[in-house]
């Protein structure tokens, strides 16, 4: 009994292997895990289906657990396309010569952040980061996030002239924007920094208890999320493939897909647009 069982098992696994071998070289992409995973998977499976249709090759999305994992997968050529934040895009393209920022969301050209506070702090919306923030608890998003870490830290250092650990009594990294929102809403942290797009979307969906948490400051604009692609995709998937991907992204007009990001559409961009992000990262010491 066991023997026939084993044989069946080996046969099926063999078939499994060959089926992968036949459909070799799918076009794979990933995205930084900046929000709840369920939402990401839903969103990017839709994108995968869309791209597969437009590009005529098999397209797969793989979810990752950290920003660094997204960058490493891109660098290691295990994914060829990625939806990066400003900072992760700069880091990734630095590591992969020839890679390019292809397209960004309309909103990403001038992205901004909210600093949010639990209502018990008594802080209100103001024109700058209020001095009363000092001594409270504060959470960033992910360690490698632009809007969750880099930009907030930059402004905290600029205003207080000190490292965040010295300004606040406790500094944490929630992991992603949705969690920053939940943690501040619950009062686990008194303050937090969140990207405006997540905040606005959650607010519109009625997922924020505005009696518990409110926006206290809006940052100046900076360039953020973008689709980045490896430089060697043309060799691998045929001449003009990169342009095809760019066009597919720019042509995306399915309101449901766009709404899931949420972006109103995608526009072309290039590596140079992210120079401000690089210089901020170098100032803070995240980039060498």
């Amino acid at each position: 009994m066991t023997l026939s069982h084993i044989r069946k098992l080996m046969l099926s696994s063999l078939l499994l292997f060959t089926s992968f071998a036949v459909s070799a070289q799918p076009f794979v992409f990933t995205a930084i895990p900046d929000e709840d995973e369920t939402k990401l998977v839903e969103r990017f499976r839709g994108i995968a289906d869309y791209l597969q249709e437009e590009l005529g090759v098999e397209v797969r999305y793989i979810p990752v657990k950290s920003y660094a994992a997204a960058i490493s997968a891109f660098r290691n050529n295990q994914v060829q396309l990625a939806w990066f934040g400003g900072l992760s895009g700069v880091q990734a393209r630095e590591l992969v010569p020839g890679s390019e920022a292809l397209a960004q969301g309309v909103e990403d050209e001038a992205f901004y952040n909210y600093f949010i506070a639990h209502t018990s702090t008594g802080l209100e919306m103001s024109d700058t980061l209020p001095e009363e923030m000092r001594g409270k608890t504060f959470t960033f998003g992910s360690k490698g996030s632009t809007s969750g870490r880099l930009i907030p830290e930059y402004h905290i250092r600029r205003v207080f002239n000190e490292a965040p650990e010295d300004v606040f009594s406790r500094v944490g990294f929630s992991g992603n924007h949705t969690r920053t929102l939940r943690l501040v809403e619950a009062g686990t942290y008194e303050l937090g920094a969140i990207n405006f797009a997540v905040w606005e979307k959650e607010l519109a969906d009625g997922n924020i208890d505005t009696d518990e948490v409110k926006v206290i400051w809006k940052t100046p604009a900076y360039p953020n999320y973008q689709w980045s692609i490896r430089g060697d995709v043309d060799e691998r998937y045929g001449d003009g493939f990169k342009e095809k991907v760019r066009q597919a992204l720019l042509n995306m007009d399915d309101p449901e897909l766009l709404e899931s990001f949420p972006r109103s559409g995608f526009i072309p961009t290039e590596n140079e647009n992210y120079e401000p992000i690089r210089s901020v990262a170098e100032q803070i010491g995240i980039l060498d």
Binding site: Y67, A68, S72, Q91, K143, G144, I286
Partner: peptide, 9 residues
């Protein structure tokens, strides 16, 4: 360690 890895260092 995690921070260094997140920073690709």
């Amino acid at each position: 360690v995690d921070s260094a890895i997140q920073q690709i260092r």
